[in-house]
């Protein structure tokens, strides 16, 4: 049984339809990446899966008793709250110093960072600390909303490698949101291309050829994706799930031209 089954979910904010008829499954040991433009409803879908907002129609079925680790898209803490990194991590409820030390080592956070105020650490350090907090709960499902934002280029590679490693070592399912189209491919098993509804989903290599993907991201992005797929995963033929009634939100001719 999948960890999470999302069944024909729609989400409405007042008049605005943020998600329409979205269905997907998430399994253990599987990395699924959500991509899509700003405002596509990625964070909204994540929130529905986490049970933070109720869908307007459709339903989300969670496997009984699974633990979820969540890394939010942003965390802003006012300077008026004195909070060290250590204290922030302790709020996860995990107290054993050994578990803490191992998790920190796993995400590559130096223990010196523990004593620093949370407001003063860098963006990249923050992402790792947030990841550590999510991992401390020994999750069955890890949900990461834009985990590499604010991380330098080398760090991005490392983080994606780390995420892939977490999957193999811990065997948890991972759902992540990403904006970058080529780096993420190194780590993901399948891609869901979202723009209010699911435009296409499947293996990165297959998605990169899909007309809906091309309509949404343009030819340049497709080349990025194809480039990666060519090198890493194109050997096995993986099917892309076909959606009959795809409505590209932006007509292809209105997309910005890619300079040649």
């Amino acid at each position: 049984m999948p960890l999470i089954q999302v069944h024909e979910v729609s989400v409405k904010f007042e008049q605005h339809l943020a998600l329409q008829n979205v269905s997907l499954n998430l399994n253990r040991r599987e990395i699924v990446t959500l991509i899509g433009p700003n405002g596509a409803g990625k964070s909204t879908l994540v929130r529905v899966i986490l049970g933070l907002i109720k869908p307007y129609s459709g339903m989300v079925v969670r496997q009984n008793g699974i633990r979820i680790g969540y890394m939010p898209q942003k965390l802003h803490i006012d300077a008026v709250l004195p909070l060290t990194v250590a204290r922030f991590l302790a709020l996860s409820g995990v107290q054993q110093p050994e578990v803490l030390r191992n998790t920190l080592a796993e995400v590559g956070v130096k223990t010196e960072l523990l004593k620093r105020p949370l407001q003063q650490i860098s963006g990249g350090e923050m992402q790792r600390v947030l990841l550590a907090r999510a991992l401390l709960r020994a999750p069955d499902l890890l949900v990461l909303d834009e985990p590499i934002q604010g991380v330098d280029v080398n760090g991005q590679y490392e983080l994606y490698e780390l995420i892939a490693q977490i999957r193999t070592q811990r065997g948890c399912g991972i759902l992540m949101v990403s904006h970058d189209l080529h780096l993420v491919m190194a780590a993901t098993d399948s891609i869901i291309c979202l723009n209010q509804q699911i435009c296409c989903m499947g293996h990165p290599a297959a998605v990169s050829q899909h007309p809906a993907y091309l309509a949404l991201f343009g030819a340049r992005a497709a080349r990025d994706l194809a480039f990666y797929s060519h090198h890493h995963a194109a050997e096995q033929e993986l099917p892309v799930k076909k959606f009959e009634n795809i409505i590209p939100i932006v007509p292809a001719e209105n997309l910005p031209r890619v300079p040649r």
Binding site: R47, L50, G51, L52, I68, Y70, P72, L75, I77, L81, L83, F88, L91, S92, G93, R133, R137
Partner: peptide, 10 residues
């Protein structure tokens, strides 16, 4: 107080 949604998920 730090992050309401994170707390709720936990």
């Amino acid at each position: 107080t730090i992050h309401e949604e994170l707390a709720k998920v936990e």
